[in-house]
Design a protein around this nucleic acid. Structure first.
Lengths: 340, 340
DNA sequence: CTGTTAGCGCCTTCAC
DNA sequence: GTGAAGGCGCTAACAG
């Protein structure tokens, strides 16, 4: 059994609260050098570690921040976790991360679990099938900020991306290269960023007098297999697209699989633009042209908003910050020479 | 402020302990249907959530398991996190994950933090610069299991890989293809798996009468940049290797970068075998031949050992389980036709 | 400078 | 079937 304050106190023949005082080591609390010495000695001998659970219960403050993401395996979200970790530790917070596996039920459990476990604040990339638990958090004035995805009808802090605009620009890039048959493949279509990207995609087509073809739009679940199937669907169309906008890093792999299996060459036979950039993008079968949002920017901004709400808990802010995309042109897009 | 047991009790004009009883909903505790009804009603109205911090303090049991990994951004470790999440949630545990950024100091903090925060057990992929804190855990009989890396001189639970043997086999594969100049590039050379792989590498050379060339061995830090530098070193040697064993998924990217920059073709100019497989391996500039260990196996086995130690806390087991490698032959290795 | 007291929110005996 | 009391380990406020 681990040593407690009491054990240390007994060993030193002082009161537990005295031990507590030297442990916390605040400057302005007067302690005689001898007792401090004595206590520090005992602490070392007993290998005493303050029980953070008890401390959190007492203080209503844990110095822990929770991050809830839908998928550890997504390089996008794991990079966000990485950045958040760095940011938190810089400010003396511990970060703990939960994976919801894109399941709404698990997200609700994670939110309840972490908040009732005394984390000081939460950063959430929501699954977005329901919003009840998010509303609850807002009502309780529990400090949290959403990232990547948000709800238009709830006032919250959120750090989101200019997905509509950046998708628009990506499509225009393809149009300028002479592409007229442009497909769009995503994971779950009801996701905030996907909705926005799709809207940008449609607008770009419209603005350039290209007819919208519903059959060029596909995507069901955020898995490699589903993306593979969606891509096959498009590639096997009688008139297949000459370019693809791909929404999601794992989705991109599924699409690549379909392209490889059909023995198409990138970009000769088909141009592709991926959302979002990962460390792998330059090293793929064809170096990937990507639209991406600075993960560092998302992370630091989210943390900043959260910290502000932790400090001003009674008077929470509700800012929606939008991060501007960057566009990395690599080898996966080229001129379309066919005339259609 | 969130509602407490007391609030619910007051609203129902019962004693808090009564509320506690219905909340936990144990079968064998007798409660009159009316009071149960009344209390459940109030719980819903107040949106009462039991405070897990207080509960953990009282029960010495949190149903939380902590995972400590050196890098969220590594697909290897993030996949492990994924698997662990699935495993834990299957058994009613919540998983929380901490990233140590390969820093020993952060790992120590994470271990202390999580253990003093009442997690029921810990799974750790240690940084391996020191082992004091790991020893402490063992002495305290705190339930934990090491993964991927372990200490030869501490008795612990651990799930490790047959790195020596699998590296040996990988090198033999290259030798059988006619390669004689085989390089070895890793991240931190003092890491358990790297030591083992290197040892297997050396043994294979020796068994096939190939001289060990120290200059063919490189690697300092587990970063893309360092791997890039290491690879450049080898590739620019007067007599450069014709094949490379690469230890680590991020390391592989650094090596690819160097190969691309030197305009070498894989596998024509150089064959490579990577540890470990990721979802990206088939889609890289050249589909990667890899040695890998089933992450699912690692995760489920680690969880199993941990659970055993959580349940039998006073009488901990110390098993070292070794996972056998799989070998995926893809396109990045081929016959060496030069005669050297 | 140090001890005493009270209580964070919960659960577990032990009464009745 | 339910209430009362005590305590998990810690800290804050108040004494002295």
């Amino acid at each position: 059994m681990a040593a407690t304050l009491k054990d240390v106190a007994k060993l030193c023949a002082v009161h537990p609260s005295t031990v507590s005082r030297v442990i916390r080591g605040k400057e302005n609390i007067p302690i005689s050098p001898e007792t401090r010495e004595k206590i520090l000695e005992a602490v070392k001998n007993l290998n005493y570690q303050p029980d953070q659970t008890a401390r959190a219960l007492r203080l209503k403050k844990s110095n822990v921040i929770g991050l809830i993401i839908p998928n550890f395996s997504s390089p996008y979200f794991s990079s966000i976790a990485k950045i958040m970790e760095l940011e938190c530790s810089k400010q003396g917070y511990t970060l703990i991360v939960c994976d919801t596996n894109e399941e709404q039920e698990k997200e609700i459990r994670a939110v309840n679990d972490l908040s009732s476990r005394g984390v000081d604040g939460l950063i959430i990339a929501p699954v977005q099938e329901c919003d009840y638990h998010i509303r609850e958090l807002a009502i309780k004035k529990f400090p949290f900020v959403l990232i990547d995805r948000c709800f238009d009808n709830i006032e919250t802090n959120a750090v989101i991306c200019n997905d509509e605009e950046s998708a628009y620009n990506a499509v225009v890039h393809l149009i300028n290269l002479g592409h007229k048959k442009i497909g769009f493949i995503s994971g779950r279509p009801n996701l905030y960023p996907v909705i926005k990207r799709l809207s940008g995609y449609k607008k770009a087509l419209q603005d350039h007098d290209l007819a919208l073809q519903e059959k060029y739009i596909a995507g069901v679940n955020p898995t490699l297999e589903d993306a593979f199937n969606s891509a096959q669907l498009l590639l096997n169309l009688p008139v297949a697209p000459s370019a693809l906008i791909i929404s999601g890093s794992i989705i991109t792999l599924g699409v690549l699989k379909a392209i490889i299996e059909k023995k198409l060459a990138i970009p000769k036979d088909i141009s592709i633009i991926g959302f979002t950039d990962t460390i792998y993008s330059p090293y793929l079968i064809c170096p990937l042209t990507t639209v991406t949002h600075s993960i560092k920017e998302i992370g630091t901004k989210a943390f900043e908003l959260l910290l502000h709400n932790i400090i001003n808990e009674d008077n929470p802010s509700h800012s929606k910050v939008t991060i501007k995309a960057e566009f990395f042109i690599r080898g996966s897009t080229t001129q379309n020479n066919s005339n259609e």
